[in-house]
């Protein structure tokens, strides 16, 4: 049940970022969050770079979920 909750939250947060429903998050999507999250543009850039583990400029659900797991469990899960 807990696993499903985490999966659900991951999807929910991913969609909150990917408002155009592209299936990935780009830097522009991340910068847009600046209007409603208490994070600076620089911090959001940092979040994007940290989550974009392969550095291709696109954040997939997999990368996003890996970052969320790292946050939840306090370590990076590959």
């Amino acid at each position: 049940v807990e696993k499903n909750t985490i999966l659900g939250k991951t999807h929910e947060f991913f969609q909150m970022c990917d408002i155009e429903n592209k299936g990935f998050i780009n830097r522009r999507d991340m910068q847009r969050l600046n209007s409603w999250l208490p994070l600076s543009a620089e911090e959001l850039e940092n979040v994007f770079d940290t989550l974009d583990s392969d550095g291709n400029g696109f954040l997939t659900l997999e990368e996003f979920s890996s970052g969320f797991s790292a946050f939840l469990f306090g370590r990076r899960i590959s």
Binding site: P38, N46, D49, T50
Partner: peptide, 29 residues
Amino acid sequence: DPNMKAGAANEGVLANFFNSLLSKKTGSP
């Protein structure tokens, strides 16, 4: 080690980001 420091800072920013998302979610009706 500067790399370790940068890593720790990133973890902090990440935690901040997800905490904000969580609070936005629970804060909205």
